[in-house]
């Protein structure tokens, strides 16, 4: 617990008032202090927060894509982000490892902390941050290299395995270690059986669903602390999807997983807590997954979940 704002003693009553307020004011962006009230920092989960965002605003030029998002993401658990298309889920995800820095038009205000350390401050080592907060993108983006090179990319770049010219010359190459990492990651991502005989083929020759799993495996191979997944199962058949869901459940034992999904059932199945974003870039409700799906506090969330709109 790094921030005093997070108070474990906040009671349900406060939460209720807050959410009614938020429904009333949903279209008006209120004053700063009201927005903190509107926030979901006081959601009481078990365990420590791994990531926390406070009053996070993102503008793309003049387009206000995220409005004062404040929430905490508990350690070693699965957090699902759901919401209609274009509501800012991917944008929020990209804030958590500062990939938004790559988009010229994007302008991020507010704060995000990782283990209590502010990641939007001067002197932050982005390379270090992204080693610790890995990401699987919405659209598969394998490198135009072999499957093996794709998986081994992260460990090689971080100096964990060395199979370069010099390592070969000096007889120090970590081929075995690399093989292990490749096999383990591909198995975790349920891709091993399909590609084990063609690890040296170009990854661009894989199908869309295979590419998606390759990107998951590639992210796991770098062994981050937090894994951000943007619709990791969008192009997968039911069998592969269920394997990925199992994987996510397993990962939650050691990793903090944040996953964006459009599939309500999936969110209900795999996540410990769920955050609902609605159009306009607001975080409307955040809490235990069971509670969100069974008795959401906001009418709008209920409508969205039951498919009335969005």
């Amino acid at each position: 617990m790094s921030e005093p704002v997070t108070s474990a003693d906040t009671e349900n009553s406060t939460q209720t008032t807050q959410s009614t307020q938020s429904t009333e004011r949903s279209t008006v962006s209120g004053e700063t202090d009201e927005r903190i009230q509107q926030s979901w920092l006081d959601y009481d989960f078990e365990g420590e927060p791994k990531l926390a965002s406070k009053e996070l605003d993102v503008h793309y030029g003049s387009d206000h894509a995220l409005k004062g998002i404040s929430m905490e993401i508990p350690k070693e658990s699965v957090t699902a982000l759901i919401g209609p298309s274009g509501c800012g889920k991917s944008t929020f995800l990209r804030c958590l490892n500062r990939m938004n820095d790559r988009i010229k038009a994007a302008n991020v205000d507010g704060s995000v902390t990782l283990d209590g350390e502010e990641i939007y401050q001067d002197g932050v080592n982005l390379v270090e941050l992204r080693k610790r907060v890995g990401m699987v993108f919405q659209a598969p983006n394998p490198f135009p290299k072999s499957i093996r090179d794709n998986i081994a990319y992260g460990p090689r770049k971080h100096g964990d395995i060395d199979t370069g010219l010099l390592a070969r010359l000096s007889g120090r190459k970590d081929q075995k270690k690399e093989d292990e990492i490749v096999e383990r990651s591909l198995k975790q991502a349920a891709l091993w059986d399909e590609v084990k005989n063609r690890l040296d083929d170009n990854a661009l020759g894989l199908s869309g669903g295979q590419q998606q799993r390759l990107c998951i495996a590639r992210c796991l191979a770098t062994d981050p602390e937090v894994i951000l997944m943007d619709e990791p199962a969008s192009a997968l058949d039911p069998i592969a999807t269920s394997k990925i869901e199992d994987l996510i459940a397993d990962l939650a034992e050691n990793y903090t997983v944040v996953v964006v999904t459009h599939n309500m059932q999936q969110a209900a199945r795999i996540s410990d807590q769920t955050a609902v974003f609605l159009t306009g870039g607001e975080l409307v409700e955040y809490g235990d997954t069971d509670k969100i799906f069974e008795s959401p506090e906001s009418q709008r969330v209920e409508d969205y979940i039951t498919g009335k709109f969005g």
């Binding site: 990782l114 350390e117 932050v124 270090e128 080693k131 610790r132 062994d223």
Partner: peptide
């Protein structure tokens, strides 16, 4: 899991 990462997230002076 954070052990094994040599460098710090935020650089000092």
């Amino acid at each position: 899991m954070s052990d094994g990462y040599g460098s710090k997230l935020v650089e000092g002076q």
